[in-house]
Design a protein around this nucleic acid. Structure first.
Lengths: 208, 208
DNA sequence: CATTTGCCGAACCGTACGGTACGGTACGCG
DNA sequence: CGCGTACCGTACCGTACGGTTCGGCAAATG
C-alpha cells in the first residue's frame, strides 16, 4: 500500500482563510485565473505575504485545495441499530451527499485543477484530492456496508468492490460531464431522485 | 438541444499526421510538455509550418484531440438476430471496449487536457471530447438497448437513463482515479472481469 | 520616543513561451 | 534555366507571470 499521505491539519489564521477563500474564488472563476498577482489583488494583500505564508504558487494551490477539502462535511454515519430501513436511509443519504458535493462549483473547479496538475510533473494535487475525495468516501461507507453484511442485510465478497459499484451507480457520468464543461447541472430534485435510484439499484444487486 | 458541434472531418496529409502524432506523444508525456517549440523540435518541422497548418496553439490542440478521437474504433454493433445471448455479448463487449479506451494512456492524457481547457475560457476541447467520448458512446449503444427492449429482453423507461446506469456500472471510479493520477492501471484481465460483472449487473437491473 | 515586527503596494527581474520574421534548401514547372 | 512554392532551422520580439526587493506605514513592544 502506498504511504497514505497524511493530510496536514495545517491550521490557518482567519486572515489567511480570507486569502484562501479569494484564491478559491479565482479557481472557480477559471483555473487559469489563479495568478499570484490576481490573488494578491482581490485579497488585498501583498505578494510578499503570499510567498511568506505559502512558499510558492504550488504551496498556495495545495493550501487552497486542502482548505476546500476541509470544508466538505462527510455525512454522519450512525452505526446504531441497523435494520433494513436505517441502512437504506444511510446509503441513500450518503449517495445524495456525494452527488451534491461532486456537482458543486467548488468541487468541479477543484477537481479540474487537480486533474490538470496530475498531468504535469509534481503529482501533488491529484493525490490530495484523491485522498480527500474518492478514497475518503470509501473509508467512510465501507464500515457501514460491512456492518450491513454482518447483520445479513447485504451480501458481497469484497467491500471495496461493493463500494466501487455503489460509487458508479451514484456518480454515473455526472462528474466527467461536469469536468468536461457540459453546460448542465443536476437540480436538487434530480440529485435526490438519482440518489434514491442508486440506493435502490444497489440493494437490488447486493441486498438479501 | 445544444447545436451538435459538427465534428469536422478535417483530413490531414501524412506529414501532418506525423506532426499530430508527435504532439500526441508530448501530450501523453505531460500536459505541459506540449509547447510549439517542443512539437517543432521532435516533429522536425518549423514553427512557421505549425502556425501555417494549425493557426495557433489552440488549433494544434484541437487538431490533436480530433486526430486521436478519430482513431478510437467504436465497437461494431450487429443488430441482427437479437436473442438474449447475443445481446449479452454485445453489451459486455461494449463495456470492455469502453473500459479499454478510458484506461489507455492516450485517453487519459486527452481527457486531462480537455478538462484543463474546460476550466478556462474558450470551452472548446471539453465539448469535443464530450461529443466524441461519452455522448458518442450513448448514441452507439442506445439503439441496441432499445432493440433489446423491443424484443422484450430489457425493461426500462428511458434509454438515456439506462445507458447512464450502464456507464456507471462499467466505469465506476476508474476514470476519475486515472485522471487524478492514481498509480494503478487495470490489467487486461481486470478489464475483462469488470466488463463481465458490469454486464451481469446491468441485466440484473434491467433484464426481464 | 526608539525599535522591531508584520504587512501593504509597487516596482523590478528573469524566464518561458506564443507568435513572427528571415535566410537557406529542395523540388516541381514553364 | 529561372521562378515559385513549400518547408526547415533559427533568431528574434512581446508579454505574462512567478518570484524578489524595497520603501513606507501602523501597531505592538520596551
Amino acid at each position: 500500500m502506498t504511504a497514505v499521505a497524511a493530510v496536514k491539519p495545517e491550521t490557518w489564521t482567519p486572515r489567511q482563510g480570507e486569502v484562501l477563500e479569494a484564491a478559491l474564488s479565482l479557481l472557480v472563476a477559471g483555473g487559469d485565473k489563479l495568478t499570484m498577482n490576481g490573488v494578491a489583488r482581490i485579497a488585498h494583500c501583498s505578494k510578499e505575504t503570499l510567498y511568506k505564508w505559502f512558499g510558492d504558487r504550488d504551496g498556495l494551490l495545495v493550501a487552497t485545495v486542502q482548505w476546500q477539502a476541509a470544508k466538505v462535511g462527510v455525512p454522519r454515519l450512525d452505526r446504531a441499530h441497523l435494520d433494513a430501513r436505517a441502512l437504506g436511509r444511510v446509503v441513500e443519504d450518503f449517495g445524495r451527499a456525494l452527488l451534491s458535493v461532486l456537482a458543486s462549483e467548488n468541487s468541479v473547479a477543484l477537481n479540474r485543477v487537480a486533474v490538470s496538475h496530475a498531468g504535469t510533473t509534481v503529482p501533488d494535487l491529484g493525490t490530495i484530492v484523491l485522498q480527500n475525495g474518492r478514497l475518503e468516501m470509501g473509508r467512510r461507507l465501507k464500515p457501514v456496508l460491512e456492518a450491513g453484511r454482518a447483520v445479513g442485510l447485504l451480501r458481497f465478497a469484497d467491500s471495496e468492490q461493493a463500494f466501487r459499484t455503489f460509487f458508479g451507480l451514484v456518480v454515473r457520468d455526472v462528474q466527467i460531464r461536469l469536468l468536461l464543461g457540459d453546460r448542465w447541472r443536476p437540480s436538487e430534485a434530480e440529485i435526490d431522485a438519482e440518489a434514491k435510484a442508486a440506493a435502490e439499484q444497489f440493494f437490488a444487486l447486493f441486498g438479501t
